[in-house]
């Protein structure tokens, strides 16, 4: 069937054109910035000074330095650990478990837990950073309430366990999203199917593993896609909490990119880092999008 325009629209085509303008601008801007980063990743452009004006083409130098200079590979590893434990293991699994256990509850408890995890999501990143900083400091809540009363020496968590602190803070911050998504997904699983499996003698584990999870598989993939992209490029909470330190302990790629671009001032090298991040996230996204497809 041929698609037909509404008669009013057909006689007022300018409305369609006008509506398309923002989209064209948006797509244009996205392409422009991506193209900008790609082009300047082959230059020695800097933020200030002579090379801010008279930059030159340096070929693949910036890309070679990703592998020959300290920083990129270390940050890639830190980002992988951070993303795996905070997003995939933490937010996703915790979000699913909470959604699965709480959906049968109709009590005050559910309301309290929902409100609590939503709070983490709603608190601005910078505020969250100060909260976690105060909580984990040597004179902070954890030491005052738990460690010291038990007779142990107070622990400076950010100094000793910077990456775990940042991972836990991000789990706290982001679990609400996975919880909401999985709650909706589980609501879509029809009760009859689960009941039928039960009648057929499936154990609780089998019902989850062989019935429920396959049904909500697209939701899992969608969730993974979003939180992986978000976490892989996540910046504010970590930067405010630790600045990537101590040393480089929590220097994820986004912070490495920021430091190289704006503190050292090497915009060309920073562009190469951002292109590399784009490629990595792109590959991960393709992987998840394949998961989204129904099996034949």
């Amino acid at each position: 069937m041929k698609y037909q325009l509404h008669p009013w629209l057909a006689s007022n085509l300018w409305v369609l054109v006008a509506l398309a303008i923002p989209a064209i601008f948006l797509i244009g801007a996205l392409l422009y910035f991506t193209g900008w980063a790609l082009a300047f990743s082959f230059t020695d452009l800097e933020l200030v000074g002579r090379k801010a004006v008279n930059w030159s083409w340096v070929g693949f130098d910036n890309y070679a330095r990703l592998f020959t200079r300290r920083g990129f590979l270390e940050s890639l590893w830190t980002t992988t650990i951070f993303s795996f434990f905070s997003a995939i293991v933490g937010q996703s699994v915790l979000g699913f478990l909470l959604a699965a256990t709480l959906r049968t509850q109709r009590s005050v408890l559910r309301g309290v837990i929902e409100a609590t995890i939503m709070l983490g999501w709603l608190v601005p990143d910078i505020v969250a950073a100060f909260l976690w900083s105060a909580t984990t400091a040597q004179t902070g809540l954890i030491n005052n309430l738990i460690i010291t009363p038990l007779g142990f020496e107070p622990v400076n968590f950010i100094n000793e366990f910077a990456l775990p602190v940042v991972i836990i803070a991000n789990i706290w911050k982001g679990t609400a999203w996975s919880y909401l998504l999985f709650s909706a997904a589980l609501d879509s699983v029809s009760r009859e199917v689960v009941e039928a499996a039960k009648v057929d003698g499936a154990t609780a584990f089998q019902r989850v593993w062989r019935v429920i999870l396959p049904i909500i598989r697209p939701h899992i993939a969608t969730n993974m896609l979003f939180i992986t992209i978000w976490t892989f490029t996540y910046f504010p909470l970590i930067y405010a909490l630790t600045g990537g330190g101590p040393g480089r302990q929590t220097e994820v790629l986004a912070i490495f990119l920021y430091k190289q671009s704006f503190m050292v001032g090497k915009l060309g090298y920073g562009s190469a880092i951002s292109v590399a991040m784009l490629v990595i996230v792109g590959v991960l996204s393709l992987f998840y999008l394949r998961l989204l497809k129904e099996p034949k």
């Binding site: 400076n156 950010i158 100094n159 910077a162 630790t242 990537g244 330190g245 101590p246």
Partner: peptide, 10 residues
């Protein structure tokens, strides 16, 4: 000295 004070939130 501790590394962490050089990376404190403020």
């Amino acid at each position: 000295a501790t590394a962490s004070i050089n990376y404190a939130t403020d």
